[in-house]
């Protein structure tokens, strides 16, 4: 069993990196708009279908499609906030929540109509390739996904910490009126934050596609994990989403290893409950 332990941990970390990217988008939107984005799963699914279409119909490799789809999903998220969620909500958090739920219903059913409920997949040369690293055999697709996810997370962190727009988004998150007094337009920052959170899904979709099936239901499984990560790490916390993502990836794999396929999935919820019992604000959450 111990011979399997290290590969399980490493495999979990690799998957966890992409989970973290999905969770980063969710935690960014929560941190700035103070709402849980119910459309997150549906938008991830839509992005995965986007990547699948590009690959299956145009022969574009998901990794090459990544910049394109990330930009496209940014535009989709920005426009959704600017033209649907923002106007519908009139600044009420409850209404924003319902608006995102409505968007999710529309996307989910639109996908069912267009693609039916079938699962689809693509072939990439690296999907089944393995990389030998010492005693470890690493699946190439997941390794690439992990490295890309961490790079993107670092890029996002740098943007939020070092640019004026990033600072303005963080400022609006806590003090919208103070932000207005220095000339920041809060609604623009909300739309940008929603766009960036959605852009993370475009990137995640391209990284997930080589190793996962796409179906109109695919978003649900990932978004449940992402919600778990965001709460576990501390709502709105960047490091929380990153560490939480890796932790959930590893826990999932270890659960599968020791408890088997059917009992294994209880490990993540158990970890979740344990963390919340000991630290109700999550691993990196600020005490309120």
């Amino acid at each position: 069993m111990t011979a399997l332990l290290l590969p399980a941990i490493v495999g979990g970390l690799l998957t966890g990196g992409v989970y973290a990217l999905v969770a980063l988008g969710l935690t960014l939107i929560y941190g700035v708009l103070h709402i849980v984005n119910f459309a997150h799963g549906a938008l991830l699914m839509a992005a995965m279908f986007g990547a699948w279409l590009l690959a299956a119909k145009l022969g574009l490799d998901p990794l090459l499609a990544l910049p394109l789809l990330t930009a496209a999903m940014f535009a989709v998220g920005w426009a959704l906030y600017r033209f649907v969620i923002g106007p519908v909500s009139r600044g009420q958090d409850r209404a924003i929540l319902l608006a995102t739920l409505g968007v999710a219903v529309v996307i989910d059913n639109g996908a069912l109509m267009l693609f039916t409920g079938d699962s689809r997949t693509i072939e990439t040369p690296y999907a089944l390739a393995m990389l030998q690293a010492g005693p470890l055999l690493l699946p190439e697709a997941k390794l690439i996904a992990f490295v890309c996810a961490l790079l993107l997370a670092a890029l996002l962190w740098a943007f939020m910490a070092l640019t004026d727009t990033g600072r303005a988004i963080r400022a609006v998150a806590r003090e919208p009126e103070g932000a207005m007094l220095v000339g920041i337009r809060p609604q623009r920052m909300f739309a940008l934050a929603y766009g960036i959170g959605t852009a993370c899904l475009g990137a995640a979709a391209c990284l997930l596609l080589p190793s996962f099936y796409v179906s109109p239901q695919v978003g649900e499984s990932f978004v449940l994990i992402a919600f778990t990560i965001v709460v576990l790490g501390g709502m709105g916390s960047f490091p929380g989403a990153l560490v939480g993502g890796l932790l959930v990836g590893v826990t999932e794999n270890l659960g599968g290893l020791y408890l088997g396929e059917s009992l294994g999935p209880i490990c993540v919820p158990l970890l979740f409950i344990a963390v919340l019992l000991l630290r109700p604000t999550g691993l990196f959450g600020a005490a309120r």
């Binding site: 600072r167 963080r170 007094l181």
Partner: peptide
């Protein structure tokens, strides 16, 4: 403004830099 309305989650430096946002 009254009540200061600074950005509590940002560093002092970032608060000042946002002062010349426009």
């Amino acid at each position: 403004p009254e009540g200061r309305r600074i950005f509590p989650n940002l560093s002092v430096r970032d608060n000042l830099l946002l002062g010349c946002y426009v």
